[in-house]
Amino acid sequence: MSRKLEIIVLAIILIFAAQFIHMSSTTDAEYGGADGEAEGVINEITGGTYKPIAEPIWEPPSGEIESLLFGLQAAIGAGILGYFFGYYRAKKTYENELGYKGKSKSEGDRPSLEGDRHSL
């Protein structure tokens, strides 16, 4: 299987990572959240008069707890991704093995989409 796409994606990520490392060590960029900056613009436009009409019903008590919950969100998602890709992959391998058993060689070489899976 060709790894071309993997290399392109890795290169894109590395370019941005290198840019980040360079900029964070040469400038004093804050890397604050864009959402928070938007709040600053709102204050600027309204002259600081705007009072939010509602408060969050619950806020993470500290930055630590917040990163815990963000980490949890990523972990849940990554777990599900890994589980199903593993499930599909194993299923495909297993089905192909079974498929080979009762079949004659000519059937296995069928140039259809189903047949093509054997060659992977």
Partner: peptide, 12 residues
């Protein structure tokens, strides 16, 4: 589930 999980990961 995969599509939903991908949103979970990326938006975190």
């Amino acid at each position: 589930a995969v599509a939903g999980a991908f949103i979970f990961v990326l938006s975190s």
